[in-house]
Amino acid sequence: MQLSIEGLSKTYSNGVRALYDVNLTLGNGMFGLLGPNGAGKSSLMRTIATLQEADKGSIVLDGLDVLHNKTRVRQLLGYLPQEFGVYPNIPADRMLDHIARLKGVGQAGERRDVVQGLLEKVNLYKDRHKHLGTYSGGMKQRFGIAQALIGDPKLIIVDEPTAGLDPAERNRFYNLLSQLGQNTIVILSTHIVEDVSTLCSSFAIICKGEVLYAGDPEKAVKELDGVIFSKAIDQADIGYYRNIYQVISTQLKGGKLHIRVLSKDARLQDGFAPAEPNLEDVYFSNIATRVDVNTL
C-alpha cells in the first residue's frame, strides 16, 4: 500500500490557510503526524478521510484517486476523529453491529464475531450492553477505536487517539495498532512526541499547514547528533541566551531553567554541555522556524 499526497492545499472561507502544498508519501506501517495546535493535522486527516474537500492537489492510494473516489476509499478506511459523538440511547454492541454492516460485513455471524472481538480488544466487552450515553470519556474513546478498526481497514486514520486513555490503555492501543500496521497504512496524529519515536516508522512535522519535515524518526534524531547542547541557567537570564543562541526548548526543574540549544559549533562554550538529541529536539527545532516556541 502506498499513499501519496501531492501539492495538497486548502484555505478555509475565513482565510485560514489549513494546508499549503503538502507533499507526503506513506507506505505500510505507522505514520505519525506531529505539529502544534492548529497546524493542519486534523485538516489533513479529514481530507484523506474524505470528509473535506481540497482546493488543490491530489491524494492517491495505490492508484486510487482519493479525492474523487470517496466511496471506494471509505470502503478501505478506518477513521477515528479527534472529537466525535455517539447516539446516547443505543448500546455499544448494537451500534458497532450497525457500523459493521455499513462497513460491508454482510454476514450476521461474522458481524457478531467482529464486534465481540473488538469489544474485547478495547476492553469494553463487559459494558457492551450499556448505552453509549453512560460511557465515560475514556470508554467513549475506546468505542471510537473499536469502530475505526471494524472491517479490516487498509487505511487507518486516528486523530489523537490516546487522548483520555490511561497509560495502560494507551499501551494496549499502541500494541494493537502496531500489529495492524504491518500490512496497512496507519496515520496517527499526536502531541506526544515520544509516541512517535517509539511507534512510527516514519513521521512528518507540520506547522501552519506546511510540511516542515518528513522522514524516519531515528534518522531525524541522528541528524541532530552533536548539535544539541544543554545548560541549567537562572530564569532571569533567559533573555540573554535567547539573543545569542537558538534555544529550542526550556524546562524548569528545581528552580533552575534547563535549556537546550541547537548549535553547529561542536565545541560550544559558555557552560553548555553536549546533549543526546531526541525527537523533541527535532520537533522544536523545526517548528521554531515558523512559530515562536516559548515554552516558558
Partner: peptide, 27 residues
C-alpha cells in the same frame, strides 16, 4: 448514571479474524 468504573478484565488473546467484506450486490 455513568457506566461502572473501569476494570481490567481478562482479555482474550485471540487474533481478530478478518471478516468477509462485500460492497456489491445486496450491500
Amino acid at each position: 448514571d455513568k457506566a461502572g468504573a473501569d476494570e481490567i478484565s481478562e482479555r482474550s488473546r485471540t487474533e481478530l479474524k478478518t471478516p468477509a467484506l462485500s460492497f456489491t450486490g445486496v450491500y
